[in-house]
């Protein structure tokens, strides 16, 4: 094949390739933005529910117990 013909093909490939890469990644930009909005709205609607459920868990174990257990664990680790 003639070099000039190859060059024309390469130039063509360069153009289509760059357009292709930009198009694909631009679509991805919009998709990611849409995804972020979707995730943000879902999080907002879920927030009140998570607040309620998290409270009883934190009050289940008194702070004094947590401190005592962690002190025991660290003592155990130091010994071994």
């Amino acid at each position: 094949m003639e070099i000039s013909e190859l060059l024309a093909q390469a130039a063509n490939l360069m153009l289509t390739g760059m357009i292709g890469v930009f198009l694909f990644l631009s679509i991805l930009i919009f998709a990611v933005k849409a995804l972020s909005k979707l995730a943000a709205t879902e999080q907002e609607s879920q927030q009140p529910a998570t607040k309620k459920s998290s409270k009883p868990v934190s009050t289940g174990v008194p702070a004094a117990h947590v401190a005592a257990i962690s002190a025991a664990v660290s003592q155990f680790r130091q010994k071994n």
Partner: peptide, 15 residues
């Protein structure tokens, strides 16, 4: 996500 454009531009090195 706009950083994707930079990832696209750098591919000019390939072509």
């Amino acid at each position: 996500p706009r950083m994707l454009l930079l990832g696209a531009a750098a591919q000019f090195g390939i072509f």
